[in-house]
Design a protein around this nucleic acid. Sequence first.
DNA 1: ATACCTCTGTAACCAATGTTACTGCGCAGG
DNA 2: CCTGCGCAGTAACATTGGTTACAGAGGTAT
Lengths: 210, 210
Amino acid sequence: MIQDLKEEYGDIFEEELINEIVQVGTFKEVPEGYKFMEIGDYIRGMPLLISGVIKILREDEDGDELLLYYLEKGDTCSMTMACCMGDKKSEIRAIAETDAKLIMVPIQKMEEWTAKYKSWRNFVFNSYHVRLNELLSTLDNIAFQKMDERLIGYLKEKSRVTRDNIIHSTHQDIAYDLHSSRVVISRLLKKLEEMGKIKLHRNYLEILDL
Amino acid sequence: MIQDLKEEYGDIFEEELINEIVQVGTFKEVPEGYKFMEIGDYIRGMPLLISGVIKILREDEDGDELLLYYLEKGDTCSMTMACCMGDKKSEIRAIAETDAKLIMVPIQKMEEWTAKYKSWRNFVFNSYHVRLNELLSTLDNIAFQKMDERLIGYLKEKSRVTRDNIIHSTHQDIAYDLHSSRVVISRLLKKLEEMGKIKLHRNYLEILDL
DNA sequence: ATACCTCTGTAACCAATGTTACTGCGCAGG
DNA sequence: CCTGCGCAGTAACATTGGTTACAGAGGTAT
């Protein structure tokens, strides 16, 4: 755990803070598909991602989903901070997109470290505005792009975070993430295949040239 | 200026910080329609809103607009912080929705005060997560609601921030904010009028019962 | 009053997306 | 090997929202 932590966060946190994190944090190793957090859950801790990818989803009352963004190593979830500081329930769902390692830090430490460590303060501010910009760009996609462009963006982004030009998803999976329907996605994927940009298979697809 | 500042921020900032703000801040009084910031502008300062309402808009490459949210008294613009910490250009446009008073604080002070004053730190964190939640709810509206619901939400929100159940906008104005077209908005407004929820006039409309 | 300009109402039409329904394929388990 | 189930392909159709076009209403400047 300590090595992992140092490797990923050693450059940005001072020695003393790293030690504190090791003291109070809980190391977790979770498999793909693990659900960290459900909408309405109370937040117990704040995650520091060491490896893997976590996807953050929004859901409305009717159960319609929408992918907000991915967390990658070195990231934390600002939503978590935003929520716990207002001691509210989670507004989002978090699911491991790949196997992942992370450290959970009790939220009480947040405040304390914010006052004590400049590096922690910077880290938290940085997370906030990375997330703000991420949300903004998600909003752009939804507001200004058509489904075909969003789909291409989705495939690119997913391929980027998983470092794999094979997308291991069914059409239905993709439809959920983009808040669309299976038929629509199948239709558009077929077009992309006809254009030679991807190759379709059962349960997965290959990205050729997006 | 000092009275205004104390009245609005006296409860949350300590005396010493208030004094510093007065020292380095510039008081500004601007009329409705004043454009504080354009997309691509470099950010010179951070606004502390004392009275009035500012609307924050997003725009894509083609010039299509979208209302993100309103800033009200006591608010500041987290986008500004997010941008200036990465010494980047503004991602948004800010326009006075009503006459407004505010204080501009040079961005260099941000960092300094964040280390020095707990109240400032809390204020900044708080702004960040209020904005995150605001953006999230904007996203919800766009992703999960149809135009008619979005329109109703827009009218309610606009009426709330301006404390006026008369909306002084043309159909075209509304269409811009919602990133739709004039004809569509006229169509939907007519339906709302038929349902007895609003009353239409030239250049404005009354909210009866939304 | 006249001319002009902006705003609103409305119809006809189009494109994108979502929905329903049915087909067949491939794979896993008995 | 057969069965059943989940996944993908496809067609027909509905709905929403956007576009174009035009007419009339209200207000303003000359």
